[in-house]
């Protein structure tokens, strides 16, 4: 509860917001919902630039082929229950959003915040990466105005976002199905591991997220994706074991204070199998 803030601003445009941060005298940062504010490491921030007045709360379908545009101020609660986020393709997004902390925090926490500032919780970034989302990042253009770049949702490396303002996320629509599975020590917990899987036709994306703040953060399981894609719509009877093995082989050795590297890999493999099973519409544990 001891932010050392000297200044609070509430700009009306992305350009104004970017300029406020760029020209700030002390250390400055954007704030969307603010749910990470008290988590420590913010004592140095002198100037907060509140994005709430920016027009970044929209949820809409646009373009051909159709894509879903989600403003970066869209809250996790909205992601859970917005009618445009119904359907099988976006199940992973709903499930990832609904897994975060508690309802009150889901009311405050935003899509942009989870992508930009998430330190230990990779649920939503994993789901977005599995769905092949692209991020819209605004930057100041030399002279005047802002330019918006479209970049692929990143895995561990987030440098593509540095110095920019995430204004929204674009998720390609179409036929498909996704699922997100997470596991924690209690029903309300930062997950020890999570996995998102998405199938669009014969293309698969499987993304593992882990709790650690350090890399690997997110990891696409490309060999597992290839293996599953090769099965087509008729996975072999022993597909679970095969998928588990592929997943274990591909996951990095990564221990932390909470769990061992071995268990993390094993748990992630189990979650991957369960996410795949959900997408394959197989019977799954409740």
């Amino acid at each position: 509860m001891y932010l050392s803030l000297d200044r609070y601003s509430r700009p009306a445009t992305a350009e104004e917001a970017l300029r406020l941060v760029a020209e700030s005298e002390g250390p400055a940062a954007f704030i969307a919902g603010g749910t990470d504010l008290n988590a420590g490491d913010h004592e140095a921030i002198a100037h907060l630039v509140d994005l709430q007045a920016l027009p970044m709360k929209e949820v809409r379908v646009f373009g051909e082929p159709a894509a879903l545009h989600l403003g970066s101020l869209v809250t996790l609660s909205t992601l859970r229950r917005h009618p445009l986020l119904g359907g099988e393709l976006l199940a992973a997004v709903r499930e990832a959003a609904g897994g975060y902390a508690n309802l009150a925090l889901q009311n405050r926490s935003t899509l942009g915040g989870r992508v930009m500032a998430a330190r230990v919780d990779h649920d939503l970034p994993a789901a977005l990466l599995a769905l092949g989302a692209r991020l819209h990042v605004a930057r100041l253009r030399d002279g005047f105005g802002v330019a918006v770049e479209r970049v692929a949702a990143p895995e561990a490396d987030r440098t593509a976002l540095d110095g920019g303002l995430l204004v929204g996320v674009e998720v390609p629509l179409g036929e498909g199905r996704s699922a997100h599975r997470r596991f924690g020590r209690s029903a309300v917990d930062v997950p020890l591991a999570c996995v998102s899987a998405c199938r669009r036709g014969d293309r698969w994306r499987v993304v593992a997220g882990v709790q650690a703040a350090a890399p690997p953060g997110l990891r696409r399981l490309r060999r597992l994706e290839e293996l599953v894609a090769a099965w087509g719509s008729a996975p072999p009877p022993d597909w679970r074991e095969a998928a588990r093995e592929a997943c274990r082989a591909e996951l990095p050795e990564h221990a932390c204070r909470w769990i061992s590297a071995d268990y993390r890999r094993d748990l992630t493999a189990t979650l991957a199998v369960r996410a795949l099973a959900a997408v394959l519409e197989e019977e799954e544990l409740a």
Binding site: G184, R185, S186, A187, D189
Partner: peptide
């Protein structure tokens, strides 16, 4: 050393 990481039972548990 926070309630985020010190896991008590909740109403769901």
């Amino acid at each position: 050393d926070t309630f985020r990481h010190y896991k008590q039972f909740t109403s769901l548990d």
